[in-house]
Design a protein around this nucleic acid. Sequence first.
DNA 1: GATTAAGCGAGACGGTACGTCTTGTCTTGAG
DNA 2: CTCAAGACAAGACGTACCGTCTCGCTTAATC
Lengths: 196, 196, 196, 196
Amino acid sequence: MSDASPPSRGRPRDPRSHEAILRATAELMVESGYAATSIGAVAARAGVGKDTIYRRWPGKPELVFEAVFTTTDEVPPPDTGTLLGDLTALLQGLVDEFRAPAAAAALPGLLADFAADPDLRARIRGDFLAPSKERLLVVFERAVLRGEIAGETPVDLVLDTLAGAVFFHVGLVGEHPRRETAALLAAVVAKGIEVR
Amino acid sequence: MSDASPPSRGRPRDPRSHEAILRATAELMVESGYAATSIGAVAARAGVGKDTIYRRWPGKPELVFEAVFTTTDEVPPPDTGTLLGDLTALLQGLVDEFRAPAAAAALPGLLADFAADPDLRARIRGDFLAPSKERLLVVFERAVLRGEIAGETPVDLVLDTLAGAVFFHVGLVGEHPRRETAALLAAVVAKGIEVR
Amino acid sequence: MSDASPPSRGRPRDPRSHEAILRATAELMVESGYAATSIGAVAARAGVGKDTIYRRWPGKPELVFEAVFTTTDEVPPPDTGTLLGDLTALLQGLVDEFRAPAAAAALPGLLADFAADPDLRARIRGDFLAPSKERLLVVFERAVLRGEIAGETPVDLVLDTLAGAVFFHVGLVGEHPRRETAALLAAVVAKGIEVR
Amino acid sequence: MSDASPPSRGRPRDPRSHEAILRATAELMVESGYAATSIGAVAARAGVGKDTIYRRWPGKPELVFEAVFTTTDEVPPPDTGTLLGDLTALLQGLVDEFRAPAAAAALPGLLADFAADPDLRARIRGDFLAPSKERLLVVFERAVLRGEIAGETPVDLVLDTLAGAVFFHVGLVGEHPRRETAALLAAVVAKGIEVR
DNA sequence: GATTAAGCGAGACGGTACGTCTTGTCTTGAG
DNA sequence: CTCAAGACAAGACGTACCGTCTCGCTTAATC
């Protein structure tokens, strides 16, 4: 119906350019890292003019963010029956996400650029953490119903703690990806916030 | 005994240049941020040639690190009598350090540059976290003696969790520095790692 | 056929930049001299980025050469009816060229840079002297027909002598530009190479 | 007499440094050329501090001049009995001087630096050409007595012509050192200035 | 024999230019 | 209106050299 479709005059944007740019960005992220990757290099590898990139993204941070975190967290929140189980599953997802080559290479620089720009700064909580926060909220709601935790548990602080822990331990220090890390961390936090 | 003192040939380095450079760096960090601060700008403000900077530091990351973390953590580890008290004190120190204007402005970009360079990467754990780790170890030892925690508590993981949490919550998201944040976080972690 | 015209892709070079750069170069030559003129200063005065200069010229020597010897020697060879008259006219042209403020300021340094670089060295005879040589050849041909000189007169040596004499007397020593200098020199050389 | 000998207090200058510096300068002139030779490089090769050079010479031009033109023209003026013979001998000396490796490498840059500095500019005629001029004057005096040339022959112009010709032909264009060049040039000039 | 003053090698110092790179915008002609 | 190509102004990069300075020595001439 209606749809208020844009007039769409002139030549339409080529969707293949879009894909090629994102692919080139992800590849360069792995090969050269965030700082050493320039928009010009992305354009050259994608076989695309620089303007074609600037027409779609305002700058490197936004481009890299989209190229590296394509996996839109549409995964449903875990439901294992216990807070510990849910937290472990959730953390394991976080760890896997931070360990992906392109993400691991991009994250520190990406976060730095977002933090440096006042406009982007607000989007850290919004775009980076929002999906995880939503799932954490569901997990907490269920835990409250089960009587495991109190209602006023500080979600944001817990989320920052989990994300920060994974970022430091895996993304930054580059610690070898121990399988038990997620479980260990989940255990500490779950026990720490449980009512008893 | 060895001695190995350098023969000290040629004109010795002027310590006033050293200080002027560090001061200029810290100021520019606050005024312009990490990424927008160039070595040339530091040199100009310090009234110094660029070579005088490059002669002492290999690059921006090392310079900024020294300029911003002058507070040599010689503070003795806290000893309040309880794990919770000690952790709260320790965390409060971390929060204060991350909230200092120059440090807050520098941290994200600084960590990104350290993480991007293989040589510097190893120094994150060494130079950034080592002082805190040492004090955390003492706190843990006392807690073990008191029977509050088990001997095999994973220090590195806990340290990364605390640092990561503070970095995300204060340094990155720029959350207003709530007085109770440190206490709240300490409470969760202390409870999470206690034996009972 | 061939044509070999470049496909002309991308934005064409702005001819106004070209002109502005050459004008700025000539001005700086007069004001500061060859050695004290930097590419950066030329760019700043022309209101142009340094790359815009390096995109068109490989270095300072080539740029200055084009800026200072714009007077494409399309002047027809003199034809006064006698060897002496022709030589005098030709030499007067050389003196005037070497006395032009920009040329006088640039010549010693320019020749030095050309002589120092093996690639440019060959262009001294080609680009600097070629136009004059062509006209000298015509003058000599006519003089041979008139029976004034022999056919095997060494053109290159005479040309180097004339150019060298003017360069030393006017360009280098900075001798005041006496009106009779050209005539005097022409008289000596004309008499020196005449058959009788 | 008096002499006004300097009091000469303190340690006298080491003559071995003097020699080492001049030798290093001449060597570097041949190996790297004038422009690419820095005072620092000379000092390093001579095993000497930069100040030891600056204490004796005001700058590169003066140093190189002394290093390259050590052969103080104490050679007596030629006396072959004819103007042509004398001029040929004189020119042959000039050619030989300009063809010496160190001199050939240094000359264009050296002249450019002398010409660029108002203070040094005057010394071109003085230091470079004076010895040759003195000998040319003697040759001319004898030729006048013999009746070969007139008394008012313009010595300076002839000297500039000879020097300029050799500089352009041998030093600048790097023409192969033809044995007959000097004779040919001498013939032209001698005939050009003779009374008949 | 002690003092003094300059010479000496080394190298730090404030400046400045180098030629390359990246940024985000602009300007072509072709689709 | 998009696209690939590439020019454009701005300015940072890390290196090299300049000519001066500041060290701790050494080396004579003077006291």
